[in-house]
Design a protein around this nucleic acid. Sequence first.
DNA 1: CAGTCCGATATGGCACGTCG
DNA 2: CGACGTGCCATATCGGACTG
Length: 375
Amino acid sequence: MGELIELQVALGESSSSFNMEKAVCNHGLFMMSPNAWIPSTKSLRRPLRLADSSCSVYVAISHPAPNHPFLVVQVHGLENSISSADEAVIMEQVARMLRISSKDERDVTEFQILHGSAKERGFGRIFRSPSFFEDAVKSILLCNCGWKRTLTMARALCALQLQLAGAHLQRKRVASNSNLKISTKRLKHKKYSKASSTSESSMSGFDQSIGDFPTSTELACLDEKYLNERCNLGYRARCILQLARKVENGELEINKLEESSDTTSYERFYQKLMKIKGFGPFVCSNIMMCIGFYERIPFDSETIRHLKMVHAKGKCSRKTIEKDIEEIYGKYAPFQCMAYWLDLLDEYENKFGKLSELESSSYHLVTGSLQLQRN
DNA sequence: CAGTCCGATATGGCACGTCG
DNA sequence: CGACGTGCCATATCGGACTG
């Protein structure tokens, strides 16, 4: 079994306002594989990529105490050292998920000035994925289906990744006979392969049978039919492959954008996304929100239902929704998404209690819809 | 802007069986 | 006998995106 390495992620200016639970459990994304929220320890567990992005390691992220200046990231399965490149990549992913950056800090502060109760509730860091690609794919998974199926598809993609990674490492090992350099990879491979069939995987409380979320590189070369059959994605398989190939070809200059704060470049990016087949206003707005552009609310049937039930917009429909949204959330510009998500979160938590305390087995029930699932 | 797409899921109806 | 419960099937509904 590999050693446990602890990294620290400095919160800097965010340390006084940061709340682990609030930073994670505020959006459906935290319920989707491979994310796993552990209520008892208020920690987030999942695999993250190493500098060699074909390899992942399991991490547990937690905040030791309120006002503590660092997050603690336990890295499992490496030998007792970690390269500085790996360290940097892991910290970058943690910071992306939890929105620890000066831009995010600025957004949170500005939004909370506009929205008093958001400040009281410590809301403002909408949880996201360690990578743009994962956010984008998960946005597609939300479409044309219920929440339960979304969760199933995300799980299936992670299971597929586990297999792909296993096969990839095997090829790598065969290719390089000098096995001196790849000790950490071999160790990780040991953990990945069939770890679930033996009982010791429960040792550290990790479910290591879950793979990482696939990267664009891992998906781009797959056959559409195969991907669909493996993960039951329906028409989404094609959209996801298109996206993966665009990312691989460098057609979406996402890295530049996330650093920029120029509104017109965000708009251009939105238009670019809209040109991809299967990417409509909902998906693209959702992706934009993840990137940090909060002006376009990803509205869907759930939004209409929400406005009807909570905002007494009895006549709200597809036709009126944009006007209604502007009426209700326009005053929070340019952070309309945040206000909307806080509203939805309130509604869900009134119904289900704190999401951070919910059993993962009932995640699939979390929806505002009137239809009750029967088990 | 209305109609279409698609698979999954919810719903309604029916036959059949069991129990009090 | 009626009141239920169960299993199955056909049908209806759903929901963003696409089409024209």
